[in-house]
Every structure is written in C-alpha cells, then in structure tokens.
C-alpha cells in the first residue's frame, strides 16, 4: 500500500515536473486576441465547431474566418461573451447546436477489451489504461467531448449526465411577481 502510494506520488511529481517544464519550454508567443478568445471557449476540444479543437476555432474567429456562434458547449452565454470581446452583436447559437447537459464518459469495465483506441482519441488524456488492460476515465478530467465514443470497437463507453449535488447546486433566478406600479 505504502509503496503503491509512493509510486503514484512519484509519477505525479514527475509528470507535474514535465508539465511545468513543457509549459515554459514550449510556450508559444501567441496572438493576444486568439488567447482572449480561447480563454472564453470551454476547452472541451470536441470539434463540434468544425475545427479540430478550441484553439483552431479561436484562430479562425480572430481571422474573421468563422462565426462566433458555432460552439455548442459554450452555449449562448459563450456567444454573448465572444460578442462582447469582439464588439459585435450577439446572436443565437447556430441551428441544431443546442448545448447538451454536462456529462462525463464512463467505460463499462466488464466489456472493455483494452484496445487503447479511446486513449488516443481523448484530447485531454482523461483515460487511464494500457494495452489489454481495462481502461477507466478520470471523471474530474473528462470534458464530455464524446470523441472517445466512435473509436471504441466494443461500444463500451457511454455518457453520463452530471447531476447537481449539494455542493454544485445553484440558487435559482428569483421568480417574483413584479406588480405594476399603479
């Protein structure tokens, strides 16, 4: 048990180190507008906008090559914030782009054959596993992009909607009657 914890902690440290190093070493001097747009996009990396990820979409917007209402996970709120940033009129999301409720992918561990195809598809490395081993998804890191669903040869990945709990519950918009002043 102790050794397992130590090994995991060691791996965590090493990966963290690599991450930190990489973020400094490979920092790209980006266009500040692209950065700002990218900061508004939800980073789901799902490609529903027609681009291979949020950053490419941000680049396309900054060049005026793409409209601002193509990201369903960002929702109308995201469109509004993009419009504010770019100083244009907000518009509704594109047709057929209603945002779905937030979800995470879950692997049916009895069916998984350990083919690693989903690992390669996952844009944020949220899937753990090795060849011929059962895989599992780290729920906190899954963005719900659904990119791991089509490659799975045995269809063992499904999306589970995240239900709100006491910690994430939000006070609702107060529904109060506004009486007209007579």
């Amino acid at each position: 048990m102790i050794s397992a914890i130590l090994v995991m902690a060691g791996i965590g440290l090493v990966l963290g180190g690599v991450l930190g190093w990489a973020s400094i070493r490979y920092r790209v001097q980006d266009d500040p507008l692209v950065e700002k747009i990218d900061a508004i996009l939800p980073q789901t990396q799902c490609g529903q906008c027609g681009f291979p990820g949020c950053k490419p979409y941000a680049e396309a917007i900054s060049k005026g090559e793409a409209d601002i209402n193509l990201c369903p996970p960002g929702g109308n709120d995201g469109v509004k914030r993009l419009a504010e940033l770019l100083g244009v009129e907000p518009k509704p999301l594109g047709a057929g782009m209603e945002p779905k409720p937030k979800a995470v992918a879950v692997i049916d561990e009895n069916t998984c054959i350990g083919c690693t195809l989903c690992i390669q598809a996952c844009p944020v490395d949220a899937i753990l596993g090795a060849a011929k081993q059962m895989h599992s998804i780290i729920a906190e890191q899954c963005t719900g992009c659904e990119l791991c669903l089509p490659p799975c040869p045995v269809d063992c990945i499904s999306m589970q909607v995240i239900r709100e709990d006491v910690a994430t519950w939000k006070w609702r918009y107060p529904m109060h009657m506004m009486k007209r002043a007579a």
Partner: peptide, 16 residues
Amino acid sequence: RDKREADQARRRHEFK
C-alpha cells in the same frame, strides 16, 4: 468552477 476546469483541460490538451 467552469473556468478552473477549462484551464485544466487546456493545459492537459496542450500537453497531449
């Protein structure tokens, strides 16, 4: 919360 999650996803995606 969403922002924190998005930042995490961005970092992980860039690392991948």
